[in-house]
Amino acid sequence: MIPFLDLKAQYASIKDEVDAAVLNVLASAQYILGDEVAALEEEFADYCGVDHAVAVNTGTSALHLSLLAAGIGPGDEVLTVPFTFVATASAICYTGARPVFVDVEPVTLTMDPAKLEAAVTPRTKAIVPVHLYGQMADMDAICAIAERHGLVVIEDACQAHGAEYKGRRAGSIGLSGSFSFYPGKNLGACGEGGMVVTNDSQQAETIRMLRDWGQSQRYHHVLKGYNYRMDGIQGAILRVKLRHLDAWTAARRTHAAQYSSLLDGSAAVTPPIEVTGRRHVYHVYAVRSHQRADLQHRLQAQGIQSGLHYPIPVHLQEAHLDLGYAEGDFPVSEAAAREVLSLPIYPEMTPRQVAEVVSAVEQDSYVC
């Protein structure tokens, strides 16, 4: 069997380091925040090329607090994309603001700047581009529109640890960037975790208070805050994994290059494209197929796992029908939702496994 990802193999490769880090936290009894989390914040800020990083309990919390700290609240509109995990829109809703969707462009499936400006209204306060699958959105074009209209840009970098846009790391371009450390991410915790990165000291200070019940110091509650703190064990584990992230990213990029080379000119699927000037970190290697259901069934029958990211765009999810959108409103996102299929990709894969997946994909019965 070829799994979609193999967290057991990852753990086995760094077991001694992880076990020692966890035992150190248990011995220290610093279970919430503490020295390990503070050290992770410093190291991740350096990794992203920013001045500040604030650790939280999930990527959703990172987005939520980034928006709150930027002043987003009831009555505001926030522009984002419908082709994303639902957490992007949920974090906007948590602030009391309204998500307003902008379709994606067909190559990268990230926010289409050509459709962005038309969505701006007097109520628009922020833009949340999503760096989907590990490739960054067109930040120059997005930021230019934001500047013209006085809007805040909050990067949803939850799938883009180490991705780059013209030499700048994900999370370092907008007012702040939000990361998820969900276990399956390129940098994943052994549980939940998230991080906000920013060059703005006020944004960082506000988020630090918001994550810890709005406290400026113990029992001094300046803001109406939340319990969004990272625990010490996750901080320690993520510090270990961060030391390996560049090597893991290089392995993902090698596997992706092999996939793309073998699938070049494929009649069965369309492989993803890495846009010039952007460094794709391949959190997901998503191909497109007009016969996706048949292809996925065939892969499964041969012991090859795959994933759907994402089969229903947010504007068509039952939970968000109150936003008033309907089928046909965002045709590029809707087409992608029908066609994308994520093939296995993880650092521990072998070239032989990649070739085996491609061989299964290319069978004549799945020619489009």
Rank of each mutant, 00 (worst) to 15 (best):
R243Q: 04
E17C: 03
A21H: 02
V269S: 06
V50H: 11
H244P: 12
Y310G: 03
H220L: 15
R229M: 12
E147A: 14
E334A: 15
A9P: 05
Q291C: 05
Y11F: 00
K115M: 10
E192G: 01
L341Q: 09
V287I: 15
E164R: 15
E339P: 12
A53G: 03
L33W: 02
D246A: 15
G194Y: 00
A146D: 02
Q10H: 13
K185A: 04
V354A: 07
N57Y: 00
Q296M: 15
R243L: 00
R239G: 00
A335F: 04
A360M: 12
L23V: 06
D103C: 13
R243C: 00
S333A: 14
A268F: 00
S289D: 10
R352V: 05
V78E: 03
Q215H: 09
L343V: 14
D112A: 14
K241G: 07
V18W: 02
Y31T: 06
V287D: 08
L151Q: 11
V340F: 02
E274S: 12
Y366S: 10
T84F: 02
S178Q: 03
A45I: 06
A236S: 15
V367R: 13
R98Q: 11
A335D: 10
L299V: 08
T88S: 07
H161R: 08
D16E: 15
L132N: 11
D264W: 10
G167Y: 10
Y11A: 00
D138L: 13
T270W: 03
P311H: 06
G34N: 01
Q30C: 01
V22R: 08
D264Y: 12
A114Q: 09
A163E: 08
L316N: 02
D231T: 05
D246E: 15
S266N: 09
S342R: 12
G265I: 07
P99G: 12
G265E: 08
V128G: 07
S260A: 11
E155P: 13
P106L: 12
D19Y: 07
P311T: 03
V54D: 00
Y346M: 08
R253G: 09
Q234R: 12
R338S: 09
A146G: 05
